[in-house]
Design a protein around this nucleic acid. Structure first.
Lengths: 140, 140
DNA sequence: TTTTTAATTTAGAATAGTTCTAATCCATTG
DNA sequence: CAATGGATTAGAACTATTCTAAATTAAAAA
């Protein structure tokens, strides 16, 4: 089930360096949790919990800082689904999401399953940053 | 520009009653601000500000309660755009949005401008609550 | 290697948006 | 008009996130 390409320490370090960031213990530890080859959707809190559980020495503030830096560097994508919570998606390819309202959980839609047709011209002076499609699901 | 159908007090009261709510001074006052015939996108805070300015006697807590009740009753639609802020849209017809990231502002897309093709089958046990499309815009 | 420098991390405070609580108020019913 | 139960309120509490200022550490310079 799924190809688990565990990222090597060298590749991870390189990826962080390329982003213009020092490969500190904290960034390496969080990067290892995030980029373990499986596409993931985590909140800052969840990632902090994992870090604590696996002995990555990091504070919650640094988790927030690191997530933001990784997003800015294009290593992660931020997804808004529920109010008041950001999800961070390790799959940065163009795709959309199911959001399970009852479970507060994001799930990828396969690429191409939803296509947004005929994007409108953005108002003058504006450019499209991205298009978010979230299909909200509730238990039947 | 735009058809300003100011809602009559009787219609407003009836609408609130049909939703199973008592037409209190606060609900009538907020309803008058919301359903003034123009399609609006407000946050709780903005609506509270308007209420204060126009002499509607209401607390912030009641603004939140009322917005939630109106959403549950189908009189309003909640739109998630920026993290940590909910917008309430008085236009409950099926349509999507531009979100001006730099201005924290929502704008309607005309109906039909974006069409989501070939909705995927939701996972068993789940049903689609709704499909949100937000086109995020930034200044060029 | 040691020193220096600047980036990074940190605990805890601060903030923003929202919900909760428990007392008071008021619209409706009898 | 009194009783009743829903509605409103101020303020506390809560959640997610950002900020602050001091301490730490990675990288560069010596």
């Amino acid at each position: 089930m799924g190809i688990e390409t565990v990222i090597s320490d060298e590749v991870l370090e390189q990826r962080i360096r390329v982003a213009g960031l020092k490969p500190t213990r904290q960034r390496l530890g969080l990067g290892r949790l995030l980029f373990n080859g499986i596409s993931r959707h985590v909140t800052a809190d969840e990632l902090f919990g994992e870090a604590v559980n696996t002995g990555v020495p990091v504070s919650l503030a640094t988790v927030y800082n690191t997530l933001r830096q990784f997003v800015d560097a294009g290593l992660l994508r931020e997804v808004l689904a529920g109010p008041g919570r950001s999800y961070f998606d390790t799959d940065i390819s163009h795709h959309h999401h199911f959001y399970h309202v009852d479970e507060n959980r994001l799930e990828d839609l396969p690429i191409g399953v939803v296509s947004v047709e005929s994007l409108p011209q953005p108002p003058t002076g504006s450019e499209i940053e991205r298009v978010d499609v979230v299909i909200r699901l509730r238990r039947q």
